[in-house]
Design a binder for these strands. Structure first.
Lengths: 324, 324
DNA sequence: CTGTTAGCGCCTTCAT
DNA sequence: ATGAAGGCGCTAACAG
């Protein structure tokens, strides 16, 4: 069933049908006839054929590392919720942080003339090392979440992670904490920024800087905290680069019968749902993933609308609960 | 840049270029010329134009309720990991469990001649109430995860949730537990099936049936357990309909200084990452979401390949850790 | 306002 | 093996 079939049965020309489909003015009489036939056959115009003409399939892509992480799934969710009501289809790409994978996804998107791409995370900055690819992305509206791409139409939405950790650190200092430890998760651009926020604040107040590193989430926090306790070092607070790490730390402290939020404060990062899955509820820095991802989608829409957008900076918020 | 431009510059006909693109036999000499021009311009054939001819955009859709739940994001992840290497693009649809939303997504998919759809969860069975829509889905390969749609080309991949809870219950009984409580989360088809698995097992062994209901995750488990403890009822084990509920229960038990896994056993459901975010690690029923979602994708591929597939039934597995 | 016609970029017969 | 021509379903100019 195509526009010709409809036209024939309604006894009009295809352009009349096309006009009907695109809400252009046609005589009420013809409109009724066309409408009737379309309803009769449940006819839906082919978006593919429309796409061939308009050069747009009304699809946008979200590139993430791994949808299984709440951070990414939340981002993908918000983006879909923002764009799909406007008729866009949202394609999801799990790159696993792998370069080849990422490039393959991008090739695939290029083939369908993707309307826009949203990159979640600074990890995608590696694309700047592929100038040839970058040039091919020049005409595509792109939004980078916490990243920066050197194409003509790329806009960034940043959340200042360093500031986030500064806020957390200042809060503890002003609360009178003197021995604040820091457990860093991984060694990425972002995690180093966070650590520097902690470090600089400690130095500002003349307090000792104690940074531990881990590459694991819950177990990483648990083990690091175990080591801290074993070391007999003074401690009245600990900041963790990720909520899950903080959960591990809290679990360890509780087992050692140390009152979390009283004897030792714990602050996490992300303000994820995890902060509600422990007792006491965890204080955490909200990096606004819901807001930034929604904002990214909105920015993309404006770009698609031809607007010229500048980079956006958002401030993370310290979300105080009971663990600090 | 299109196939004509390439043909002109390579001094061949467009059909030669087309043949090159589709790996058909052409003279090595021409092949080289075409290849050179294609490389020179980074030419990629338009999947839209190809789609207009082939009537396929090589995209499949995953319909979920809410990607923010690990269950759904894991499913979407596995499906993408299975299909994207084969060149399929994966569209994500968050229906929020809303009928109108779902229908709108489906309309949108129909317009691009979607190659296949995977529905995650029995909630999508409501589509059976829309016979007109169903008929339009007749020619589309569909896989239902734990659901059943009455279209010509719909296949289901089931996991027997009732059996899962029977396994959990039997395990506790055989361990010598006599006072096994059950905390049910929500009141869906699936949650009722689970509860019945528990109930029937208790009855089989002449043990008391004690079911509590909650509509919340962590807090639901925490509060229910608080009430159980207050009631002074005998308890040596508790089964929860969801891991998060079990986490809340564990948290409550620990605060009451009751040894989880010794005095009171706790078993959750889903075998999610959450089972590793508590101490002791949580015993849980693995409903094989990773496997079923991957299987769903594989089944879909076979259907796209023309194979005739029958429904698949998988057995959940009791995943024993330290809480029971 | 309506209909005719020429593309959009590709694939696919069908001759050559 | 290669090329010419028609068609996929729709939109957009252009006449009428």
């Amino acid at each position: 069933m195509n526009i010709y079939d409809i036209a024939k049965e309604a006894n009009v020309s295809i352009s009349t049908v096309s006009k009907y489909l695109n809400n252009k003015n046609i005589r009420p009489e013809l409109k009724e006839r066309v409408e009737a036939v379309i309803k009769k056959y449940n006819y839906v115009p082919s978006a593919i054929a429309q796409g061939l003409v308009s050069k747009s399939m009304k699809t946008i892509a979200v590139m993430v590392v791994d949808l299984r992480f709440p951070h990414y799934s939340t981002a993908a969710f918000k983006i879909d919720m923002t764009l799909s009501p406007l008729g866009y289809r949202v394609i999801i790409c799990n790159t696993l942080g792998d370069v080849k994978n990422s490039l393959k996804y991008i090739e695939s998107l290029l083939k369908i003339n993707i309307d826009g791409i949203i990159f979640i995370g600074s990890i995608f900055n590696f694309l700047n090392n592929f100038p040839a690819l970058l040039k091919r992305l020049d005409n595509i509206p792109i939004v980078c979440n916490n990243g920066k791409l050197n194409t003509k139409r790329a806009v960034s939405v940043f959340v200042d992670d360093k500031l986030g950790m500064q806020k957390a650190s200042e809060y503890l200092v002003k609360k009178g904490r003197k021995n604040i430890h820091y457990i860093q998760y991984l060694d990425t651009t972002s995690s180093n920024l966070k650590a520097s926020g902690y470090k600089e604040t400690m130095e500002k107040y003349g307090l000792p800087v104690k940074i531990y590193h881990t590459t694991e989430f819950f177990d990483g926090g648990y083990d690091s905290m175990t080591n801290i306790l074993k070391s007999k070092e003074k401690i009245d607070a600990v900041i963790c680069g990720e909520d899950l790490v903080a959960m591990g730390a809290i679990s360890c402290l509780k087992e050692a019968n140390i009152a979390v939020g009283k004897e030792v404060d714990v602050i996490g990062y992300n303000a994820s749902e995890y902060t509600n899955l422990c007792a006491p509820r965890m204080t955490s820095v909200d990096n606004l993933i819901e807001k930034t991802s929604e904002e990214s989608a909105l920015v993309l829409l404006k770009m698609l609308d031809g607007e010229d957008i500048k980079d956006i900076n958002l401030e993370p918020i310290l979300c105080i609960k009971d663990s600090a």
